[in-house]
């Protein structure tokens, strides 16, 4: 693998920046080159939010992901906006509990995960982002699952240590989701 450009997009509050941060820390643990760039500004409150994460074996040039190899869409506007920008042969991950359409592109791999529903069923409704992340890691392989707990411990503050296992569980649900 040379470079994976990842774009995670959804509504503010869905944890898209957080999911990106977890990936970035995992990349750091694995000694990879990386960058994490959030959208910022008023849209962080409720509107659309997205973050660009680049994981690479070589130094990262532009930190802005304009042609994602991996797109995760957690709402319809995000899929509408970024589907066409996705790289040929790229992978698009769709939260199918919130987006009721299919991916139109035929030159990409599409994965449908009812992440919000899975999260609700598992009793942690705010962790659909982590379920999506688990599936992304499984299919796109830009980082590995080994040592995920340690990486998460950098992102989740010691005060919320109880959240660590729950986040890990959510990632595993996504990782193991088949369908």
């Amino acid at each position: 693998m040379a470079t994976t450009q990842i774009l995670i997009a959804g509504f503010g509050g869905q944890g898209v920046l957080f999911a990106g941060k977890c990936i970035a820390y995992k990349g750091l643990e694995e000694g990879k080159q990386l960058s994490w760039l959030p959208s910022y500004g008023p849209e962080m409150r409720g509107g659309t939010a997205n973050c660009s994460v680049i994981i690479s074996d070589t130094p990262v040039g532009s930190p802005i992901v304009s042609t994602p190899d991996v797109l995760t869409a957690m709402n319809l506007p995000s899929l509408d906006k970024y589907e066409d920008a996705t790289a040929k042969g790229g992978k698009i991950f769709v939260d199918s509990s919130l987006i009721d359409r299919k991916v139109n592109r035929t030159d990409v791999d599409a994965y449908y995960i009812p992440a919000t529903k899975l999260a609700n069923d598992a009793g942690f409704p705010t962790l659909a982002n982590m379920i999506m992340m688990g599936k992304m890691i499984k299919e796109a392989g830009f980082v590995s699952m080994d040592g995920m707990k340690e990486a998460l411990s950098h992102v989740i503050s010691a005060k919320r240590a109880d959240m660590l296992d729950i986040n890990l569980k959510a990632i595993e649900i996504g990782y193991n989701y088949e369908g």
């Binding site: 941060k21 080159q33 960058s35 994490w36 959030p38 930190p63 802005i64």
Partner: peptide, 10 residues
């Protein structure tokens, strides 16, 4: 600039 301020890198 705003990008460099907001982005995270190792």
């Amino acid at each position: 600039d705003g990008t460099l301020g907001q982005m995270m890198e190792p």
